[in-house]
């Protein structure tokens, strides 16, 4: 017992901030097993996100109750939200998602709305990269976009799902540059990655973790990252390049300042404030572990912890931006 215990206390002590907030939140404690609801199928980005947190929480015994992870990815995650939303105020149901929590209800008629949930935290933001086939003649984003502009509606842009983040980004690229693509939706980013590796599509906008394997093997190559500044320095992925060697899209001629997808955690509407504080405390401790840092680095996400008012502002502005694109494309439901 003592070894594990010392490890836990070590982590907690190292993190005075986490300790303080967990003391403040001591009024609410889980009284029964907690359900982690993953609004995506097994193996995807959201699934890895939730399971990494689960493994850290279990390893450092951050929650006294057992955790049950449920994959409910049906209907682009709608199934998970339907399950996770209720009954209102039930703080033993924790839902893991992206921005689909507030964007999905805009484009599909569903039995839940964005405000059926209380936001707990944004744990990280995932980046988007413009990828082309490894043997592609295009070396820069500018060259690729110019070629696409010369022949509108011939270049095939793949992505995960329809009217989701990838297609939204594709539509933003078109609006910003005037290049028009044929958008081909696949079931997952992984599928889009393989289709690009096989040369069946010309490009995609996968998250870094979805294409890292193919990049290492030279099957695909990155042109630019949709981020305000370059990605964090890390080990070299290929012989010559690390994540930080990928130029930003803004510096390579696509005037899109930033496009990111948050990794979010939610409770049902009406969850007590001290329950929210309890989970924020737990997640802060999760963030302080080496395992979490490794997860962020390996998946080349950007570490960004958002809670409270900051999180609400982020959500509001993200939703507004997306709504504008949805409006233009005519995706909003009446």
């Amino acid at each position: 017992m003592s070894a594990a215990f010392r490890k836990v206390t070590g982590v907690v002590a190292a993190l005075s901030l986490g300790l303080a907030s967990s003391l403040a939140a001591a009024d609410w404690k889980p009284s029964q097993p907690i359900e982690f609801i993953v609004t995506a199928g097994a193996g995807g980005g959201t699934d890895n996100f939730a399971r990494t947190i689960q493994s850290i929480v279990t390893k450092y015994k951050l929650i006294d109750q057992p955790i049950v992870v449920l994959n409910k990815g049906g209907g682009s995650g709608a199934e998970g939200f339907q399950y996770g939303k209720g009954p209102a105020g039930d703080a033993h149901k924790v839902t893991f998602a992206t921005n689909n929590e507030y964007l999905l209800p805009l484009i599909a008629k569903l039995s839940w709305k964005g405000d059926d949930f209380t936001p707990v935290a944004g744990m990280a933001v995932d980046e988007f990269i413009l990828w082309v086939n490894g043997k592609s003649e295009y070396r820069t984003a500018k060259a690729y976009i110019d070629a696409a502009k010369a022949k509108p509606d011939t270049f095939k842009m793949g992505g995960s799902q329809s009217k989701d983040t990838d297609q939204t980004l594709t539509s933003e690229i078109s609006a910003a540059t005037g290049a028009r693509f044929l958008y081909v939706p696949y079931k997952s980013g992984g599928e889009a990655a393989v289709q690009l590796a096989g040369g069946h599509i010309d490009s995609n906008t996968n998250n870094p973790s979805e294409s890292i394997g193919q990049w290492k093997g030279g099957l695909v190559k990155p042109l630019c990252v949709f981020s305000a500044k370059r990605l964090a320095q890390g080990p070299k992925i290929t012989e010559t390049m690390a994540w930080s060697d990928i130029p930003t899209c803004a510096e390579s001629g696509i005037p899109i300042e930033q496009y990111q997808q948050p990794r979010t955690v939610w409770l049902p509407k009406g969850a007590p404030a001290d329950a929210v504080a309890y989970y924020v405390g737990v997640l802060e401790k999760v963030r302080a572990t080496p395992e979490w840092k490794e997860y962020i680095e390996r998946s080349a996400q950007t570490d960004r912890f958002l809670t409270g008012a900051e999180l609400k502002n982020f959500i509001a502005s993200d939703e507004q931006k997306a709504r504008k694109v949805f409006q233009q494309e005519g995706w909003l439901i009446q």
Binding site: G74, A78, A108, L110, S162, K163, Q167, P185, K187, W331
Partner: peptide, 8 residues
């Protein structure tokens, strides 16, 4: 959910 059109 229909993958191609994103509608139910």
């Amino acid at each position: 959910m229909d993958t191609i059109s994103g509608s139910l």
